[in-house]
Design a protein around this nucleic acid. Structure first.
Lengths: 346, 346
DNA sequence: GTACCTTAGGAAATCGGATTCCTAGTTTCC
DNA sequence: GGAAACTAGGAATCCGATTTCCTAAGGTAC
C-alpha cells in the first residue's frame, strides 16, 4: 500500500515528453530510437516506478507468460519437490507458475484444467503422487508430464530412472562383497515396488546371483519395514545379539524399496541384535532426509533428484512453448547416496 | 491440443446471431435480455466450447482474479500445508494462485514481489518457515501473513496459537496425574521453543507445579531428542530396565517442542529400559504424521491445523479484497491429538 | 539545389471482453 | 389514439500495452 494511482504507460510518456508507443519501444528495446531518448524514458519510468500491466501485455501478446502446475496430488512428498524445481526454473524464463492441486479428485482436476485454459497459460506441467502412468489431459497448449508419465507415448514425460537407481545399488552392494540379498517392497501393485524388484533381480542375475527368498510386499510404512525384517529372518528363530545369521536363510543385505521401510528395517535389525551394516547391509530409496539421515545408521539410498526432474520438465515445456516439442519418456538418472548403512563408520 | 483456432466472443455472437455485447451479457447474467436469447447464446457458447480470455477480462475488470502465494521458505514442512490450504480456499472464490517461492533469498523475494505487482494480483498471502515475525512487504494491494506474522501490528496475520496448544498439553498431562514434568526445546532462539517453554511454565505455575530441571535447548533433530533424554535422566546413572526413575531428579513426563524431538526421545527412553507412558509420558508438537504415527509409541501431540490456517488466511484476504481488511494477529486454536505416548494401549 | 534515403518517433489499430449509452420496438395509460 | 414508460439488444468506448504504419526531419548524392 504505497501508491494509490497505479502508473500507466501514458504517465511515463507524459513525464518523458514522448508518445506511449515510444515508451514501449524504449523499455522493450524495440523500434529505432535515439539512445538519449531511451535513457530519458527509462529515467521517467524509474522515477514513477512504472511496472507494465501484465494483463494488457498478455492480451496483445496473445500469451500469458504463465504456466500451470497441475498436481494430482495434494503436492505431497514426491510431487512437491517436482513442483518447486519447476517453479524455480520457470522464473528464469520470466514465466510465472499457477498452482493447481487436484487432490485426487477428477472433478477438481477438470475444473482446474478449465481454469488454466481460460487463463491461456502457455503450457502445463502435470505431476502425480506416484509413478503410475496416467491419462493425459486434453488442452490446446503444450503439456509435460513429470514423475507420473502420460500413457500416450506421443506426450512428453520426464520420470526418475528407477532401473538405473537400482542398478547403482546392486553395483554398490555387490562391490562391497554382499551376495545374499533380500528385497522388501511397498505396495505390491505399484510400479515403484515392481520396477525396483524386477531390476534388482535382473541386475543380480547379470552377476550370477539370485535374490534370497521371495520379494516381500506390504505398504510403505516403517512398521512394515520392521515386520518385513522379521519375515526375512524368520520369526521363530530370532538370532541372538551379535550372532551372525548365516545359513541357507541368511542374508547379508536387505534392499528396501523406500527409506521409510529401510528405517523401520534398521530399527528392527538392531532390536534383534544384528549390526548394520556389519551383519546386514541395508539400503533405502528416495533419500527423504528426515528418514535417511535420522535412521540409525543413516541410510545408503538413491536420490531421485526430484527438483532436477521438475526443472527438466520446465525446460522441456519452455522448449515446447517456443515451438520445439519433445515426445516420449525421458528418464532422469538418479544419484547414489552412500551412508553408514552399507559402509559402516569408515 | 484439440482446437487450433481459439474461440472468441465474436464467434459465439456470429453463431447465435447477436452482437458480442449481448453474448457478454447473456453469459454473465447482466443487462436485460429475453430468456430465450440467453439460452440461444449459452447453447452457441457451449457448442463452440467458448472460454472467455482471462487477460481480456482482467484488463477491463482492472483486477486479475489471481492472488500471490509468496513463500519465504522453499515451501517446506510448515509453509506447504499453509500454501495448500490457501490454494484450496481460493478456488472457491474463483481466484487462482500464483506460486512464488523465495528460498530465503531477499533478492529473489524482491523479484517475486515485483512480478506479483506487475501481474496486478488482487492480493498476496505471505508465509514463512518459522513463526518468527517478519518484515512486511510493501505493495499496493492487500496482504495477509500466515504462520509467520508481520512485525507491523496494522497488517493482518494468522498464526497458530502455540500458547493454547501448550495449555492443552498441560491440561492433559496434569489430568493424567503427571506432576514431574521436564521440557526439551529445539533451537533456543526460536519463538516456537521459547513460547512453548514460557507457556508451559506459566500453566504449571497456575496449577501449583514447577518444571523439573532447566529447559534444555538444542536443535530440532531426533538426535537431539535422544540426547536430551540422557540429559534429563542424568547420563551417569542410566536406570536399568523397568526401574522407576523417581527421586529428586525423576520425571514422569517430558514435553518435547516437536514431534521429531519426541520421537527421538521415545526411542532413547525405550533403549534405557523405561516404558512410555508407564514410566514417563511423552508429548510432541506439530502432529507431523510421519513422525507422530511412526513413533513407538505413537505420539500425543498438538496439531496446529496448518491447512486451516492457510484457508483462514485466504478468507481474510478475500475479505480484504472485497474492501473489508482485517488488522492485527489472529491466533488459530490448535487441536490436541491424544495417542499412546501418554495414554498407553488403553 | 533538387531528388532520394534514412531514421526517429508519433498516430492509430489491435488484442478480447465488459460496460455504458443509445435507439427502435413494444406496452401501458389516460 | 397519442404520449410516456419500458425493454431488448446493438454500437461504441474502454481497459493498457504492443505493434504497425506513416510522416516529418535530417542526411546523402549528383
Amino acid at each position: 500500500m504505497e501508491r494509490g494511482p497505479v502508473v500507466r504507460i501514458t504517465d511515463v510518456a507524459a513525464l518523458a515528453g514522448v508518445a506511449p508507443s515510444t515508451v514501449s519501444k524504449a523499455l522493450n528495446g524495440t523500434g529505432s530510437l535515439r539512445e538519449s531518448t531511451r535513457v530519458k524514458v527509462r529515467e521517467a519510468a524509474e522515477r514513477l516506478g512504472f511496472v507494465p500491466d501484465a494483463s494488457a501485455r498478455s492480451l496483445s501478446a496473445r500469451r500469458s507468460f504463465t504456466v500451470g502446475l497441475l498436481s494430482t496430488d495434494s503436492a505431497g512428498r514426491f510431487s512437491l519437490p517436482v513442483v518447486l524445481g519447476a517453479e524455480n526454473a520457470l522464473v528464469g524464463g520470466e514465466l510465472s507458475a499457477l498452482l493447481a492441486t487436484a487432490r485426487h479428485d477428477p472433478v477438481r482436476e477438470q475444473h482446474h484444467v478449465r481454469t488454466l485454459v481460460a487463463r491461456r497459460v502457455d503450457g502445463i506441467i502435470v505431476t502425480g503422487r506416484t509413478t503410475e502412468p496416467r491419462e493425459p489431459i486434453r488442452v490446446p497448449m503444450p503439456v509435460v508430464y513429470a514423475f507420473a508419465p502420460s500413457v500416450d507415448p506421443d506426450d512428453a514425460s520426464v520420470v526418475p530412472d528407477d532401473a538405473d537407481g537400482m542398478r547403482l545399488l546392486v553395483e554398490h552392494l555387490v562391490g562391497l562383497g554382499r551376495r545374499r540379498i533380500a528385497y522388501v517392497g511397498g505396495r505390491a501393485e505399484q510400479a515403484a515396488s515392481v520396477v525396483r524388484h524386477d531390476t534388482l533381480v535382473a541386475e543380480l542375475a547379470a552377476r550370477g546371483l539370485e535374490l534370497v527368498g521371495p520379494p516381500l510386499y506390504g505398504d510403505w510404512s516403517e512398521q512394515w519395514g520392521r515386520r518385513a525384517v522379521d519375515a526375512v529372518l524368520g520369526r521363530d528363530a530370532g538370532a541372538g545379539p551379535g550372532e551372525r545369521v548365516g545359513g541357507a536363510a541368511g542374508v547379508d543385505a536387505i534392499v528396501f524399496a523406500s527409506d521409510q521401510l529401510a528405517r523401520g528395517g534398521c530399527d528392527r535389525l538392531r532390536e534383534r541384535g544384528l549390526r548394520v551394516p556389519d551383519d546386514v547391509a541395508v539400503t533405502g530409496y528416495d533419500d527423504w532426509q528426515v528418514m535417511s539421515l535420522a535412521s540409525r545408521p543413516p541410510l545408503t539410498t538413491v536420490d531421485m533428484r526430484l527438483e532436477r526432474l521438475g526443472q527438466r520438465a520446465a525446460e522441456l515445456l519452455i522448449a515446447a512453448i517456443e515451438g520445439e516439442p519433445a515426445h516420449g519418456v525421458e528418464r532422469l538418472a538418479p544419484r547414489l547416496v552412500v551412508r553408514a548403512s552399507t559402509l559402516g563408520d569408515g
